[in-house]
Computed example of a mutant assay.
Amino acid sequence: MTSSSKPLAVYGATGHTGAFVVAEARRRRLPVVAVGRDISSVPAGVTARTAAIDDPAALDRAFADCAVVINCAGPFLDTAAPIVEAALRAGCAYLDVTAEQASALSTFEQFDERARAAGVAVIPAAGFYGGLADLLASALIGSRSVDEVTIAVALDHWWPTKGTRNTGERNRAPRVVIKNGNLVPMATPATKTDWTFESPHGVQAMEETPLSEIITISRHLHVCNVSAYLNIASLDELRDDATPVPAAIDIDGRSAQQFVMEVVARDGAHSSRAVARGQDIYAVTAPLVVEAAARILQPSFHRSGALALGEAFDPENFLRSFKPEHMTFGLNII
């Protein structure tokens, strides 16, 4: 069982997302240990420990007195397994923020039984991609069975981090979707469609882009078909090598990027919709994953095994924990 007196370890703490996660943990006055290969830029007052991904002994020392490990270092195809292994050796719960389908699926398949035996939770894809859509879909569907879920995301800009670009170069695994209740390869070329969002995004040309939410939803929700789309304008920026990295515009270090995520569940003639809006997909990952870690630290949390975010926690209650400056959401359940 975890204890609230033990710290969170953030691996990749000096990366773009990792820095947001450390700051959010500090804002919530949770004890935090920053871990990584290079800890020279860790903020003053934060405990820092050096550990390379290929050094199991150093990872063991870094996580030895911790309760939860949050992995923010991609590509997760390379980092997830060694960090989960080290977390299990230390008796820690594990969270990561991967958008990579292959990494999330591998974590579920490889570590569920061992996490149950160790009595700890292992939760991959607990960030903007993967976790947020899973929470919204879980709040809509609950234990019902539905015919179809469609996820649509629009970003007014996508200024990718170096880590995002590195992950894109590393991750060449074929994308999968859910059809007839099974994970199957996405049809190529990718389906394109239009989607009408509320202002300021409006009508957007979209391209099918399934990410780790397909894997998380497949683990615990009863949905026959699931597809996911991103607006083409943001994908064009992501694919352009000249697109700059995110630039901070406020005291929290967030970029000006505005996002909207819609999840629509259809069952026969009935449909339900959930919508989340906010600023900066990298920054909003921090309250998502830190909220999960904080809940794991509560004495009342007793879940174990490899779990999706919406499976591990009450999804609507989890979503309602967010402050408006982080994210707003709405549900229209029919």
Rank of each mutant, 00 (worst) to 15 (best):
T209S: 15
F197S: 02
I70V: 13
R170K: 14
V97A: 13
H16R: 12
S272I: 09
F20Q: 07
A19T: 15
D55Y: 08
F329E: 00
G131Q: 05
V260N: 04
R170C: 03
A44G: 15
G18Q: 07
P75H: 05
D236G: 04
D314S: 11
K192S: 07
L132M: 11
A265W: 02
R266G: 05
A117F: 09
E291Y: 02
T164D: 13
D55V: 05
R239G: 13
A276L: 10
V122F: 03
V32R: 08
F313V: 09
L309R: 01
V42F: 01
G119V: 09
H326C: 12
A86D: 01
A233C: 09
L95V: 05
L319S: 02
G119W: 06
R219N: 00
L132Y: 11
T14K: 07
E237Q: 15
C72E: 04
S227Y: 11
A187G: 02
A64P: 01
D250N: 12
F301L: 10
V177K: 06
I53P: 04
D60P: 00
G253Y: 12
A294C: 06
A86H: 03
F318L: 12
P200D: 06
T161P: 00
V290L: 09
T107P: 00
Y229C: 04
A187C: 09
F76Y: 15
R116W: 07
E311R: 11
L230H: 13
E291V: 03
S272Q: 07
H220C: 03
I281S: 08
S199F: 12
V146E: 01
A274I: 11
P324E: 11
E24T: 13
H270A: 14
E24D: 15
D240V: 03
W158L: 15
R266S: 14
G181S: 04
A125H: 01
P160H: 04
R29A: 15
A154K: 04
T50D: 02
K179C: 13
A99W: 11
I249G: 00
A265M: 09
I70Y: 00
E262W: 08
R277C: 13
S212T: 05
M261D: 00
D147A: 10
L88S: 01
L183N: 00
A23V: 09
W158F: 15
E113D: 15
R320A: 14
P200R: 08
F197W: 08
P7A: 08
F329I: 03
R89E: 06
C66I: 03
I334K: 15
A306V: 07
V97C: 13
S145P: 00
F63V: 05
F20K: 04
L319D: 01
V122K: 02
A247S: 14
R266E: 14
A51D: 04
I141A: 01
M327A: 09
A242T: 14
L77G: 15
R37T: 11
S4G: 08
R273P: 01
S234H: 03
G253M: 12
I214C: 02
G74I: 02
G253Q: 08
